[in-house]
Amino acid sequence: MAQAVVRDIDKNDPGRGLDLRKLGMWTFLGSEVFFFGALVVTHLSMRGVVAPSSSKANLDVTGVRNLFGDNVLTSILAFILLTSSLTMVLALDGVKTNNQKRFRFWLGATIACGVIFLGGQVYEFYHIVHEGVTIKNMMFGSTFFFVTGFHGTHVAVGVVWLVSLLVSAIRHPERYNAGNYMAVELGGLYWHFVDLVWVLIFTVIYLI
């Protein structure tokens, strides 16, 4: 009876029955938006600066950007991260449809994509450093490594998160099913956010 009163009185409340952890996740992601916003502003306002006394002073933005070629490597990375978003959402679909096999397979695939992406980024960093652009010697390098490095760190955190999810899913399969998928959904939200940031970085840093 009292429960009925409660339900009735809460009918129009925008907070009614929301999952606590999902609410926290979205709030946190809102904060992350500002974080990457500040990073991108830093990059955009600083990347064109040519240091008066830098060893690579003659390498301006266009010069540096030529290092990326036609963004072949980056395009592959973008493709991989995009694929990982698909596999992540398929993993969630798997757990929601009580299909443990699909869930674990796609989760594993997402982790694999993440690892490949990180490998690609390490290779890219290596390549650029090899061409003489470091975090120290020119402003473009500083901001470029900073922004992409922070994104890479987020990917790495995501990989650790998803690995622990996969381990847990193998050890305690009973914890993941159509009625209990919030842990997967939260990991997924974070993962898609990281992908979303890449959509931004890819366009703003590499293409524009």
């Binding site: 609410l23 809102g30 997924g188």
Partner: peptide
């Protein structure tokens, strides 16, 4: 990505507000 992969489409309004407003 937000609408379909992050399920904001069809989810409760509060989540979208918390994310889209920032």
């Amino acid at each position: 990505v937000m609408m379909f992969y992050m399920h904001l489409k069809g989810d409760r309004r509060m989540f979208g507000t918390l994310f889209v407003f920032p």
